[in-house]
Design a protein around this nucleic acid. Structure first.
Lengths: 356, 356
DNA sequence: CAGTACTCTGTGAGCGTTCACAGAATCGGC
DNA sequence: GCCGATTCTGTGAACGCTCACAGAGTACTG
């Protein structure tokens, strides 16, 4: 029965004595240890632990000292059990991950969210949601109350998680406007339409006549970028000059550029809906022997790291990703505290480099 | 007194009746709800929840059905409180993060670790450790028993966390051999030395005479790559042809290449200790008007995403990062279960593309 | 000084699990 | 038909914390 009991030293430890048996095999000090050392009660220690109100200066000092000398840390499980708060939020990635992980923006977002949360002593739990099994796990996890809220990155409409989150049971914030009519989830995003207008206007101002676009209308943000392009070009935006790709990847950018080149060889500018797409276009243009920006100007979107590393460096639209992350966390925390909070739109900015 | 009680229907809810008050304001069903519905006891439900041994087929079936109809999920906090296991591990990043997040390898590692852990129903908590405040938080967090183990990415020797983890109190696995004498932490890494030899041999076989190296000896893996280069070149590896950079970044690669070109203008090959470094070198070579690979061959290391996107695409050494991640998780889980587990070294492979 | 209002403190109960234990049922083998 | 295994089940007791409550001081008002 006792398969492999190795600490069989004490003959019969009588089960009633608390303090005795405790120190023997405990992981760390408990709130009772602190209380005892400080000469106060559990309750008082608990009070100083969560915003010391109604505790005398003397007691406060004693407890703080006791905490320090014992090296006490609160047991989050025990606390969660009663407060029903986990002090953790899920960062859910619902795109096919390879694609998204390829996106340098994502790293920035992840990093900044982690940092912003850490300041509030909340931990970030990373969850992937691409296969059905994973989707199921995420759903169970979130519904099970394991997290206080969800940061939703790049959600597909039709995802059962969205419906759940939209119902407001679990606070959630999306990055970028979620698609689908059911998606009533608050979100934080850049002003995609206006950003696209800025870039298109810039290309026009340069005297470019045949301005193509590599779009990606799978996501709402992508649709808005296309809209911005059309806003500026008006009727001049012929359909033939727009290629819609399936994703924001380097390879897709190259393929789209190839198509653009074959359909319209006299193209003299191209606006790609992301830097990665633009980088792919750049590679294809070089292969085709076109000089950038002399023959063809190239504009990107995002101002991600890659924009500085292409040859030539990309003229692009800066998305304030650090702020997006910070705002997502801010909105989520408000929602968790049941405070009112709504979606936010952040301004973009044209960054001039050499490609256009 | 009853400050804001909104379900005040019963006059005096007598405090002893459990089942009654429960359903009113609970978050989700508990194990007792399941037990009641299945017509068995708490204990039996608990047994089926954790590997159903000693439970009759009838009971098993009843419980499973009850779980399904109630939509029950275990309360991880309650479970952790008694088992002292959190079913979570920390993924700790201790480099200055901007730098590391820039590394495409990191994303792969993070993704694969998350996936591998998810298969065991363990969640990954991302923690950054660059500022002192963050370092402190991570330390408290890990020591506080909030996680069952730690995946340590790119640790500095001298980090107090390392000392802690090396002591074996909390299971940990490092990615890449940790530096410093105190670092007795198990690790998983690629065979850096052999990989570097493969690349250097390849360059030699191509008839290259003046082969430079852009090294990064800040980390042990980087030292080993330099060693591999020296192993093959022997005395021919003059000091002047080696530039040691401070980090694995694009900018550092460009700067190092510039130095190499000025010190040794007749250089005809360069082996960079990472793809990012190689990409920077490529950019610098183009700026200097050297053709790759005609004038100068360039070899990278990692076979990260970027190797396929440079112009020309990089010949590089493939590190089996997916396996590194999987093995890290495997080793960590063994350690957590108190099973024996030791460091692992994974083979590398030469990937031929166009740059060399 | 009574009354009232604060500040401060300790205590009991309960959060939802697991685990050890004890008892009930079943099954062979004699 | 009794014994010892073996399988199966229910029942306290924790785990470490927070929260509501009650009671003890202290201070200010009338």
């Amino acid at each position: 029965m006792t398969g492999g009991n190795d600490t069989a030293d004490a003959a019969q430890p009588h089960p009633k004595s608390r303090g005795a048996a405790r120190r023997a095999m405990r992981r760390g000090p408990t709130i009772d240890d602190v209380a005892e050392l400080a000469g106060v009660s559990r309750g008082t220690v608990s009070r100083v632990l969560n915003g010391a109100r109604y505790v005398s200066p003397a007691a406060l000092k004693a407890v703080e000292r006791a905490v320090r000398t014992t090296g006490y840390t609160v047991n989050q499980s025990a606390r969660s059990l009663v407060t029903k708060q986990s002090n953790a939020v899920a960062f859910v990635l619902s795109e096919p991950q390879e694609r998204l992980f390829e996106d340098p923006n994502f790293s920035v977002l992840l990093r900044c969210c982690t940092q912003a949360l850490a300041e509030h002593d909340i931990s970030l739990i990373l969850m992937l949601e691409s296969s059905d099994a994973e989707r199921d796990r995420v759903l169970r996890y979130v519904r099970g109350g394991h997290v206080d809220g969800v940061l939703l990155i790049s959600a597909h409409s039709g995802d059962p998680l969205i419906a759940d989150l939209a119902s407001g049971v679990v606070p959630a914030v999306a990055c970028g406007k979620p698609g689908g009519p059911e998606a009533a989830i608050p979100y934080v995003a850049a002003e995609d339409t206006e950003g696209a207008r800025q870039m298109t206007r810039h290309l026009v101002a340069q005297g470019r006549k045949r301005i193509g676009m590599i779009a990606c209308t799978q996501v709402v943000g992508g649709q808005e970028r296309l809209q911005g392009y059309r806003d500026v070009l008006g009727r001049k935006a012929r359909g033939r000059l727009v290629v819609d790709t399936s994703d924001y990847s380097f390879a897709a950018g190259a393929a789209a550029m190839r198509e653009l080149l074959s359909v319209s060889p006299d193209i003299d500018a191209v606006f790609a809906a992301s830097d990665l797409l633009a980088a792919g276009a750049l590679a294809e243009l070089r292969r085709a022997g076109r000089r950038v920006p002399d023959d063809v100007a190239v504009g990107g979107f995002d101002d991600s790291r890659i924009a500085r590393e292409t040859d030539p460096p990309l003229t692009t639209i800066r998305q304030p990703l650090e702020r997006v992350a910070a705002d997502m966390v801010d909105v989520l925390l408000r929602l968790i505290r049941r405070e009112p909070a709504s979606s936010r739109l952040l301004p973009t900015e044209l960054v001039l480099r050499e490609s256009a």
